[in-house]
Design a protein around this nucleic acid. Structure first.
Lengths: 221, 221, 221, 221
DNA sequence: GATGAATGAGCCTTCATTCAT
DNA sequence: AATGAATGAAGGCTCATTCAT
C-alpha cells in the first residue's frame, strides 16, 4: 500500500531525517526545513483556494523562501502537489494501529472506529481538499487519494475487526463493514462538513446510529 | 430544494420553459439550443480536464458556437459552471420517485434503493466531476453539490422507507439509513469508480452485503 | 530561390494585399497593418538589441498593439523572426533587375554592380543584423540569409554580366565574378560599417579599386 | 592590434604569462587550467547554441568546474565572452607570418594567401560563431571581431605582397587586394560553409578563379 | 579559494473578457 | 443578436548572480 504511494514522488522523504537538523548539512542552508515549509504552505493554499488559483509566488511567500526553490526541489508546481501528497501519506502511516486500543467488544470497536475515522478525515481535510480535485481527473492521483481517503485503513480496520471473529461473523461481512466504515467516515467526516462549510451538527448522531444498526445486524440470532 | 438551486443561477431554466411556444420560436429555439450546447460541452470538458484547464475557446468550439455567447448568456466561464449545475439539477428532479416502484418489503426496498442510487451516481459522474472541485472550495457551491450528490434524495428515500414503518423502525433510524444510503452510494457509485479509473468489480458485492447487514440490524426482535 | 524563402513562413504574404485596405475587412480591424507594424518594430529592435534581449512587450509597445497579437499572428517570438525575414525577402525581390539599367561596357557594369550591391547591403543592414545571429546557428535560417545576403542576386548579376559575353570571358569567370561581387559587397557594405559602427571612409575607394583590378583581369589579351 | 584586444579584457592573458613559473605553480596551474577549460567550454557552447541559449550551468558542467568560478574569474557570463575572444586572438597572433613561406611570384603568393586565409577562417569558425552575433550589436566587440575576422591579417598580407613590389603594382592596389583577400576569405571560408551547414563544394574553384582574375588584373600591359 | 544552493527579476505565453463589426 | 479579433493582466519557469559554507 504505502509502496504505491511512495512511487508517486520517490525522491523526497522528509520524514526519514532522523538525524539532528544540523547534522546532514550536506551543503548549505536548511534544505529539509524549506521543503517542509513549502509543502505546508502549498497544502494550506491549495486547500483554501484550489490548486489553480494558487500561485507559486504566494506559496513561496507563505513558506518564506524563494520561488525558484519550488522548481529546484519539486520540479514545479505540479511536482509540489505530488510531493505534498506523498509527504502527508508517509506522515500518517500506522496512525491508526498505534494510537487506538482495541475495544472490549465488536460493537464497541465498530462504534469507536467509526468515530475515530470520522475525526481523522476531518483532520486530513486540507490534504483531501488539495488532492481530490486532481484525483478526480487523474486516475494515478485518484488511486493515491483513494487510499489516503476512504480506503486507506480498510486493511487495518479489517484486521482489528477480525479479533472479534468468534461471534458468528464471516470474513466477507467484516470486509464489507470495513469498507462501509471508510466510506461513511469519508462522507460524514470530510464531504459533509467541507461542502457545507461547517461540521454538521447531527453528524455524530447519524454515524452513531448507523454504527448501531450495523452492530445489530451482526448480532442477529 | 430546487429553490436553492435556482438561486445559484436565477436566470436560466431551460427545462421549465412553461411559456407556450409562441411565434418566432425558431429564434428562441436557437438560443435555447445554443445554451444547451454550451452547457453540454462545458459539462463534458470540465469533467474530463477540469474547470481551469478548459478554455472558453474549447467550449465554444465543441458547442459549435461563438465564444462571446458564453459571456452573453452566462456572464462568463464561472457563470457557465453555475448554470451547468442548475441545469442538471432541475433535469434530474423527481427521477427517483417517478421511475422506481416501491418494493414489497423494507429489506427489498433498501436493497433496490442502494442499487438505484449507486447507478445514479455513476450516471451523474460528469456533473459531479465538474462540480466537486468547486464545491470543496466554495460552501455555496458545496451546498448545491451536497444535495445533488450524497444528500439529494435523502428526503425522497426517507419518504419511501417510511411506507414500511409498521415494522418497529423508528423515524430516527430511517433518517440515519437514508443518509447512509446516500453516503455509500456516493462513495461506491462515484468516488471509487472515478478515482480508480474504472468501476470496481466488487462494488456490487460490498453494497449488497452492507444493505443486507443494515436490513438485519433493523429486524432484531 | 524565392520558393525556398517562402517555405520559411508560408502563411503570411503581406505584400499581396493589392486590394484597398478596407476591402478585405474579412473580420475586424486592420490586421495587415498590425502585422506590418509588428514586423517593423521587431526588425528595428532585433537589429539594435539582438533577438534575445528584445522582449515581446517592447515589440508590442513599439508597434503600438497588444502583446498577444505576436502569438496570434506569428505563433510567438520565434515565428515573428521568421515572418520578418520572409517579409523583407519578398519585399526586395527583383529590386536589382528593375531598378538598374545595364551599363555600356562590362567594366562599367562591374563597377556599377559593385556600388549598387554595397549600397543594398547597407540598406538591408537591419534585416541582416536581425537574422545573421540566427543564421549562424541554424542552417535553415542560414540558407535563407545566405540568399538575402551575399548570394541573393548572384543569378541576377550573372545574367547581367552575360550580356557582355562576346569579350572573351568564360561563363566560369562570370560566375566567379558574380560570387565575388556578392561577397565583397557583403563585407564592405554590411560587415565593415556595422562592425565598426560607421561606414568606413575608404570603403568606396577599396571596392572601386578592386572592381578595377578585376576588370583589368578580364581584359588581358 | 593586440593593444585593442587587451583593452577588452585587460586582466587575462593566459598565453603571455611571461612571469617565470615559480613555486606553487600547482595552484596557479590549476587556476589557469580551469580558466582555459571554461573558455574552451564556452567557445564550443556559444558556437553551437548561441550565447543567450547557453547557460552558465552548462558551461561549468562542460568545463568540469563550479559555476561560481565564471564570476570569480571573468566577472560573469559577459566577461567570459570577452575573455574568450581575447584568448583566441592572442593565441593566433603571428600565425600567418610564421607558418607560411613566401611564394615565388606575386601570382603564386596571392593564390596561396587566398587558400590559407580561407582555411584559417574555417579553423576559427567557433570563435567567429561565438563572437559575431555580439560584434554586430556592439561596435566595441565589432572592432575586435573585425580584426580577428576579415581584417586581421590585412597588414600581414599587405607586407607579404609588398615583397613583389617591383612588378608595376602600386601600394594602393596592394592595399585593396589585401582587403579583398580578407573579405573573400571571410565569406567563402566562414559565412558560406557555416550558413549552409557544410563547406560548399565549389568554394575552392571560385576562390581560385577569383585569385587568378585578380592576378591577371595586375599583369596588364 | 572553491563550491553550488539559494535567490528573485524578468520572460514568453495563455486565455477570459471586451467590443467593433 | 452573434461573432471572433483584439486586449493585456497574470502566471509558471529559467537562469545569472550572490554568498554561506
Amino acid at each position: 500500500m504505502s509502496s504505491t504511494s511512495r512511487s508517486l514522488v520517490p525522491r523526497f522523504n522528509l520524514h526519514n531525517r532522523t538525524s539532528p537538523p544540523k547534522r546532514r548539512t550536506g551543503r548549505k542552508r536548511d534544505r529539509a526545513a524549506k521543503q517542509e515549509a513549502l509543502i505546508r504552505a502549498a497544502t494550506k493554499l491549495f486547500a483554501s483556494k484550489g490548486y489553480d488559483l494558487t500561485t507559486t509566488r504566494e506559496i513561496a511567500a507563505v513558506a518564506g523562501c524563494a520561488e525558484g526553490l519550488i522548481h529546484r526541489y519539486f520540479q514545479g508546481k505540479a511536482g509540489l502537489l505530488l510531493a505534498l501528497m506523498s509527504y502527508h501519506a508517509s506522515r500518517e502511516v500506522a496512525e491508526l494501529s498505534d494510537g487506538l486500543p482495541l475495544a472490549d467488544s465488536l460493537e464497541a470497536e465498530i462504534q469507536q472506529l467509526m468515530t475515530w475515522e470520522v475525526d481523522r478525515m476531518w483532520r486530513d481535510r486540507d490534504l483531501l481538499r488539495a488532492s481530490i480535485p486532481h484525483a478526480i481527473l487523474d486516475p494515478k492521483v485518484g488511486r493515491f487519494v483513494s487510499r489516503v481517503g476512504h480506503q486507506r485503513h480498510a486493511k487495518a480496520i479489517f484486521d482489528r475487526l477480525r479479533h472479534y471473529k468468534g461471534e458468528q461473523v464471516s470474513d466477507q461481512e467484516i470486509e464489507s463493514i470495513s469498507q462501509a466504515i471508510g466510506a461513511l467516515a469519508f462522507v460524514f467526516g470530510f464531504m459533509h462538513p467541507v461542502l457545507l462549510g461547517s461540521e454538521g451538527k447531527q453528524t455524530r448522531k447519524v454515524t452513531s446510529s448507523i454504527a448501531k444498526i450495523i452492530t445489530q445486524g451482526l448480532q442477529r440470532a
